[in-house]
Amino acid sequence: MMRQCVTAVVSRNELWSGKAASEPYECGWAGEAIVWLRCLGAVKGKPGAAKVRVQISPDGMRWVDEGTKFRFPAKEGAIVHARLTNFGNFLRVVADMPKGASAKVLLTLTLKE
């Protein structure tokens, strides 16, 4: 069988501010993932100071840090990514945005068996 590979847009044109989190995404069928976070604009304040964290969950409700962190892409068009394996069944991405900081994002998962 050919390996499944799926691109899932999890957050599209969402304005992230404060304690931002993507919607939970169930993808235990996949053995590997690339998380892509792209800034779509509407930048206010200094979102570049935000740490973005990947989180995993046993049930889609209770979340722990997976360990991967990256800086928030603070300019329109900027994109950051992280490669993941052994993430179990549920993934999400969270960001603690600095006070007064916000930006629109496109969060995409590339998932592969």
Binding site: V10, S11, E26, L40, P58, G60, N89
Partner: peptide
């Protein structure tokens, strides 16, 4: 611009393949 999308559609997200995992 994606801002032109009606809110009813903007909320949509990709479907998932689930094994119906429960806590």
């Amino acid at each position: 611009t994606l801002d032109a999308m009606l809110p009813g559609y903007a909320q949509h997200t990709h479907p998932q393949l689930s094994n119906l995992a429960n806590w």
